[in-house]
Amino acid sequence: MRLPIIAAALLATCATAMASGFPVTVKSCNRDVTFETAPKRAVSHDVNLTEMMLALGLADHMAGYSGISGWKTLSEDLRKGVGELPELAPQYVSKEVLLGADTDLFFAGWNYGMKVGGDVTPDTLAPFKIAVYELTESCIHIMKKDKSSLQDMYADLLNLGAIFGVREKAEVLVAGYEKELADFQAELPKLDKPVNVFIYDSGEQKPFTAGRYAMPTAIIEAAGGKNIVDDVESSWVEIGWEPVIERNPDMVVIVNYGEVTAEQKIDYMRTNPAFKDIEAVKNNRFFVLEYNEATPGPRNIAAIKRLAAAMRAD
């Protein structure tokens, strides 16, 4: 008599899985990743990826997060969102820590918690049954992809929605972002020409900036500008100061995080004689983006709106 009971239980389980959209397969960079059920012990790395999880209401599916307090401070709203979730590592999380947290999904990216050839990658975690979903913007480090766009961020939210069985919530969220941006751009005063923008992330001897495949390029273009190094075939990258001086940006966008404050970065450019003829420096046109505004995540649309207003302020 046990066989019919077992069969009925299996049928019920299958029916529940099908009703919730599982199993589901999503594209993660150049891999297809299949989930039989929604992860219950996910770990997100970095502040922007963690905010994507929170925007979809997935705190109950998380074992914790990593890579925030070592470089950045938690904003009040993020602190409230993560609640009692532990930070498993202030900077890079190790394979051992992920195993100790009984992690079943690591949401990270290349140079967002993972390094090519490093100890924590999809290949090194696979033997331990830890799935990995990779931040779309970061895929350029391991494969060819299109220029950075807001579609990268939208794709991540939609894929997370599928992975965690909250597809409808993700679709509503993305549709809301798309409409908010479209409505804003429809009313946005046109510029005579694009504002040439340099993204200054960090570094004095050589600046660390955002190239063609980093999210700030998409943010700048959506606001009505042009990244002066959008011809650099890379994501976040170190370059020399010479091309910055030669290309003479109208505005410098500072990425604010870490021990060196945004004001200190601005002062460095203001007081360095090498930069005295740059239009942005001469006209004191500096604009500050917080790290979680400049990287793919829920704050990108608000960042575009703020930057667009600053471009037209003069």
Rank of each mutant, 00 (worst) to 15 (best):
P4R: 13
A7V: 14
A9F: 15
A12I: 14
C14E: 15
F22G: 00
V24E: 12
C29W: 03
R31F: 06
R31N: 04
V33W: 04
V33I: 07
F35K: 03
P39S: 02
A42M: 12
V43C: 01
V43F: 02
D46T: 15
L49E: 15
E51F: 06
E51I: 04
M52P: 04
H61F: 13
M62I: 12
I68G: 07
T73M: 14
V82I: 15
G83K: 07
G83A: 05
P86L: 09
P90D: 11
Q91P: 06
V93K: 03
K95A: 10
D102N: 14
A108D: 13
A108H: 10
W110T: 00
W110Q: 00
G117K: 09
D119A: 06
A126W: 10
K129R: 10
V132L: 09
E134M: 10
E134F: 01
T136N: 11
K144N: 13
K147N: 08
M153V: 14
M153H: 13
A155V: 08
D156Y: 05
G161F: 11
V166H: 01
E168H: 13
A170R: 03
A170E: 09
L173D: 00
Q185E: 13
E187M: 10
K190R: 06
K190V: 06
N196G: 07
E204H: 11
K206G: 02
P207M: 13
P207T: 10
T209D: 08
G225P: 01
I228Y: 02
V229S: 05
D230H: 09
V232T: 09
W236M: 00
E238S: 05
I245Y: 09
E263C: 08
K265F: 13
F275S: 03
K276A: 12
E279V: 04
K282Q: 04
N283Q: 15
N283L: 11
V288I: 11
Y291F: 12
A294T: 01
P298F: 04
R299Q: 04
I304A: 00
R306M: 07
A309Q: 12
A313L: 06
